[in-house]
């Protein structure tokens, strides 16, 4: 099984992403997301990777109670997972990069908020990866386990690549 984090975006397709948590098996597709995403000008990869590293370093320093109440520090095992995903070809080729946000239970969320798309992929230390997706243009939304909403994820990725 190939991990989502290691697979070139060009092998992904809107119709053929099969995820189990953050793992997936690519299969030949009808829409080349890499080609789609390159229709818009993406920020330099180097710049994004530097921002990503800085942000993860910042989040790694959060102490218990960082919300002034009882929030837990980010689970260190999630840092590596998120770095690999956020530095993968898939994300590097998106016009819109995610914002990294801690959750109070020690998890990490990747959030995209654009004029038309809201998407949150949340990783938690004690439960499966989940997703929230809303498309303002089509009035479509989806919420639940990531592996159960791969079509929504694929549609969002296409739109995040198209938009400038």
């Amino acid at each position: 099984m190939t991990t989502l984090l290691d697979t070139p975006a060009s092998t992904l397709s809107e119709q053929n992403i099969h995820l189990t948590g953050l793992r997936f098996e690519p299969s030949p597709g009808t829409r080349d997301l890499n080609a789609v995403s390159r229709t818009a000008e993406a920020p330099a990869a180097d710049e994004w990777l530097e921002q990503l590293s800085d942000r993860l370093s910042e989040l790694a320093q959060l102490r218990p109670g960082w919300d002034a109440i009882s929030a837990l520090p980010v689970d260190p095992t999630l840092m590596d997972v998120v770095f690999k995903f956020a530095s993968s070809d898939l994300i590097l080729n998106l016009t819109h990069k995610p914002q990294l946000v801690p959750t109070i239970n020690g998890g990490l969320a990747l959030e995209w908020h654009t004029e038309s798309i809201d998407m949150i992929i949340e990783l938690s230390p004690d439960s499966e990866a989940s997703i929230y997706y809303r498309d303002e243009d089509s009035d479509e939304d989806a919420e639940g386990l990531l592996r159960e909403h791969t079509q929504a994820l694929a549609r969002a990725i296409v739109k995040l690549g198209y938009r400038s």
Partner: peptide
């Protein structure tokens, strides 16, 4: 509601 700095996000909407 108090919002910690790490929970402020950008949203063009």
């Amino acid at each position: 509601r108090r919002v910690p700095p790490v929970l402020v996000v950008s949203d063009p909407k």
